[in-house]
Amino acid sequence: DEEIEKWIETLLKRNISLRVNGKDLEIGSEEFKEWVEKFIKEV
């Protein structure tokens, strides 16, 4: 979905790490990609 890709790009540009389930996810890491894929499937 384009919306999500733009959102991810924005996050990448800002180099933010997300806190997911109490863990810091490094943007661009494998864990982050897995989380994004799960997130996309749920939406």
Rank of each mutant, 00 (worst) to 15 (best):
K38Y: 08
I40R: 06
L11F: 14
V36H: 01
E3V: 08
E31I: 08
E31T: 03
L12P: 03
E26N: 06
E30S: 08
K33R: 14
I27L: 10
E42P: 04
I8K: 02
W7E: 01
I16G: 13
G28A: 06
V20K: 03
D1A: 13
G28W: 08
V20R: 00
E34A: 14
W35K: 02
D24F: 09
F39N: 02
V43F: 14
L11S: 00
I40A: 04
L18A: 01
E42N: 10
E42A: 12
S17F: 06
G28F: 11
E5H: 12
E9G: 03
I16E: 14
G28L: 06
E42K: 08
F32Q: 00
V36I: 12
S29T: 07
K6F: 11
K33C: 14
I27E: 02
L11V: 08
E5A: 15
W35G: 00
L11W: 07
F32M: 03
E30R: 09
K33F: 15
E5D: 13
F39A: 04
N21C: 05
I27D: 02
V43C: 15
F39T: 04
F39Y: 09
V36E: 00
N15V: 15
I4L: 09
E37S: 14
I8D: 00
L11R: 00
S17K: 14
E9L: 07
K33G: 03
E31V: 05
E5V: 15
K33V: 07
L12T: 07
E42T: 10
E37V: 12
D1R: 14
G28T: 08
S29H: 04
G28S: 03
T10G: 06
V20A: 05
E37P: 01
I27W: 05
L12H: 02
E37L: 13
K13I: 14
E3L: 11
G28C: 14
I8W: 10
N15K: 07
E37A: 14
R14T: 15
D24W: 12
S17C: 14
I8T: 02
K6E: 09
N21R: 01
E34C: 10
I4H: 02
K41N: 06
E42M: 15
L11M: 06
L11Q: 01
V43W: 15
R14I: 15
I40E: 01
E42D: 06
K23C: 13
D1F: 12
W35V: 02
K13F: 09
E9H: 05
F32A: 02
K6Y: 12
K41R: 11
G28D: 08
V36W: 06
S29I: 08
I27S: 02
E5Y: 14
G22W: 11
T10L: 12
E3S: 11
K33E: 02
E9K: 07
K13H: 08
F32I: 03
W35Q: 01
N15M: 13
I27F: 08
K41G: 02
T10D: 13
K6Q: 09
L11P: 00
K33I: 12
D24Q: 10
E26P: 09
N15E: 12
D24N: 11
F39V: 08
K38G: 07
W35C: 14
E26H: 10
K38R: 10
N15W: 13
G22H: 02
N21S: 05
V43G: 06
D1V: 14
L18T: 00
N15G: 14
I4Q: 03
L12K: 06
F39L: 12
V20F: 03
E31P: 03
I16Y: 00
E2Q: 13
E34V: 13
K13W: 11
K33L: 13
R19N: 07
E26M: 09
E5L: 14
W7S: 01
V20D: 02
R19D: 03
K23D: 03
E34F: 11
K6S: 11
W35N: 00
I4R: 04
L18K: 01
I16S: 06
E37G: 09
E2N: 09
D24P: 10
V43M: 13
L11N: 01
D1E: 14
I27G: 03
E26G: 04
G22T: 01
N15H: 14
E2T: 11
E5R: 12
I27M: 05
K38I: 06
E30P: 12
W35R: 02
K33S: 04
L12I: 09
E5T: 11
K41E: 05
K38A: 10
V43D: 04
R19K: 11
E42R: 10
K6R: 09
L18M: 03
E30G: 08
E30F: 09
E2A: 13
E3T: 11
